[in-house]
Design a binder for these strands. Sequence first.
DNA 1: TAGGCGTGGGT
DNA 2: TACCCAAGCCT
Length: 343
Amino acid sequence: MEISNTLIVWYEKNKRDLPWRNCNDPYKIWLSEIILQQTRVQQGLPYYLKFVEQYPTILDLANADEQEILTMWQGLGYYSRARNMHATARYISFELNGYFPTKYSDIRALKGVGDYTAAAISSFAYGSPYPVIDGNVYRLISRLFNISLPVNKPSGQKEVKAAVESIFDGNRAAQWNQAIMEFGSLHCTPKKPKCETCVLQTKCISYSKNTVSNRPVKEGKIKVTTVNHSYFVFRYKDHTYIEKRIQGIWKNLYQFPLIEENLPENEVISKCKNLLTSNLTTELVKTFESTHLLSHRKIKAIFYTINLNTKPLFLKRDIFEIDLEQLGNLYPTSVLILKYLNQ
DNA sequence: TAGGCGTGGGT
DNA sequence: TACCCAAGCCT
């Protein structure tokens, strides 16, 4: 209880003014939590404001096209969040008559809602006594209790959860949850935590044992593999030609026709010509190169421009014609392709 | 359960 | 530069 008081006093004095706080609308709380998954407040905030303006109610979101929602989401990453969010909006609007679920178990069962998000919505919208455990909490708790088990493995997660429950105050769950995340985010930071001015310093076992810089422990590294992307930008008048991605990364976003194999340039050009029904007499011009970094992949991208005098016919039926300016506006696309369009 | 899934900021 | 990390979830 003493730790809870300390955290909450700190929070009331230091909290940021954010639009989804002091709000009981489960729709807006849910929306903010989906946007903020693995996303910094600074990056997610403009998207939240945009979504609330465009879709004031969950029914507005449910009635929107997925393509429009993905365009709104463009640039935020982890696009499955947007697809799941749309599916959940339709489920709540049309199966639950627009009533957002109130029970933790029902909230937890929604698409795109895991343990963290269910606890956040339950506490912030309804005051239900479920502690949030996000990256901030893993870090803060592993320091406070000097937990040496890896927090990205079930063993460490179990220990953190038990520690959280030992200090959680369910009678003020919403405030408590906001407080511990805000404190972790602003004070008990990953690098250079502000231990010298920390209100929990005397309670922090890692501080007394000088292990703060080694907490939290994480095991295993993500290996980043390098892949090649060759994009073909066919131009005919103001038109260009795109296709929809149907699986994997950037699913349901649009792109220029793409060859992913790592081939020598002459074979890439040969593959490009095979996309068309007729012989290609125009040459390909390499107009842009970029290395695009993902969390788990390094994409070495090359963009070739092909300026045509006649309308092209494609063997692949799913390649279709648009105005170039529609890509990134009417047709959502990746930041990699936005970089090309903006250069 | 380990890997897939984005992007941008910080060091 | 290369790496870590961010209000995680899904399969």
